[in-house]
């Protein structure tokens, strides 16, 4: 339990994943396991395909090569029907919440229940209020998404993500654009939900400090592969330059500060721009 990193019981196993978007290589033989029951952070600089990895794991996109197992089932070969069956066991929190703008908070949280179950309205009400209470927004049930702040919208989306009692929740950049208070609330909620409901949580982020306080295990992506694995402490003490640059937020390093350019002096002295 101490390390929290992949052990015997992994809910997700990614093997030799290759994926290219147009000419740009996104993943080049990625291997990764996510342990059941823990909070796993997937970190990396912008543009390393963290969100793409989530889309691949949830079957929203199909990789060029490689295998993705969800609880032993191959995601890359699932039919639409099988995908939908898998996704009922999955909750996902999008960057901006992705609440349905024409429904109020209550109806948004009730949405999956109404679509997938035939529960009586009394019971739905009970479940929805419980989940809203868990994220501290029971009093906001009447509001429309447009009336919510970014942090509140994300908490409502979290309530919606857990309303079907999923096995696993994916968080796509849950800390972006939040004020410190909301950030603290969301960070703590992720950990609390995970432990109280016995979930597995996968947090995709580039906010090292926030996620370090709650993650059992972190993966650092770079150049289409996993550059480092370990607990937040292990990553901090890592020797590789790539890892230290990212963990300590250094401006220059393996990820260069300068976009590739010809020699500075030559370009300045050149007669015409070409």
């Amino acid at each position: 339990m101490k390390s929290g990193c992949p052990g015997a019981d992994n809910i997700i196993v990614v093997r030799d994943l290759h994926y290219a978007r147009g000419q740009a290589m996104v993943f080049d033989g990625l291997d990764l396991e996510i342990r059941r029951g823990g909070v796993t952070a997937i970190m990396g600089p912008s543009g390393t395909g963290k969100t793409t990895l989530l889309r691949l794991i949830t079957g929203q996109e199909i990789p060029d090569r490689g295998s993705i197992l969800f609880d032993g089932d191959e995601v890359t070969r699932m039919s639409r029907r099988q995908l939908f069956r898998m996704r009922r066991r999955v909750g996902m929190l999008f960057q901006n919440g992705a609440l349905l703008t024409d429904l109020n908070v209550y109806d948004n949280v009730a949405f999956p229940l109404r679509e997938h179950t035939r529960l009586p309205e009394r019971l739905i009400r009970h479940i929805v209020l419980t989940k809203l209470h868990a994220v501290g927004l029971r009093g906001a049930w009447r509001l429309m998404p447009a009336q919510l702040s970014g942090g509140m919208a994300r908490r409502v989306a979290l309530a919606r993500a857990i309303v079907m009692d999923p096995d696993i929740i994916y968080y796509d950049e849950p800390f972006v654009g939040l004020d410190p208070i909301s950030m603290g609330v969301v960070v703590r909620l992720i950990r609390r939900m995970n432990d109280a409901l016995g979930l597995t949580s996968v947090v995709v982020t580039h906010d090292v400090d926030e996620v370090s306080t709650i993650a059992d295990c972190s993966f650092l992506l770079a150049d289409g592969r996993v550059a480092a694995t370990g607990t937040p402490e292990q990553l901090r003490d890592h020797h590789s330059e790539t890892v230290t640059q990212f963990m300590q937020g250094m401006a220059d390093g393996p990820v260069p500060f300068h976009y590739p350019a010809p020699d500075y002096g030559e370009q300045l002295l050149a007669p015409e721009r070409d």
Partner: peptide, 14 residues
């Protein structure tokens, strides 16, 4: 654009 359609897909709703 606001991921609502993808969100539905992820909630297993077409």
């Amino acid at each position: 654009a606001t991921d609502q359609l993808a969100g539905m897909e992820m909630m297993a709703v077409d």
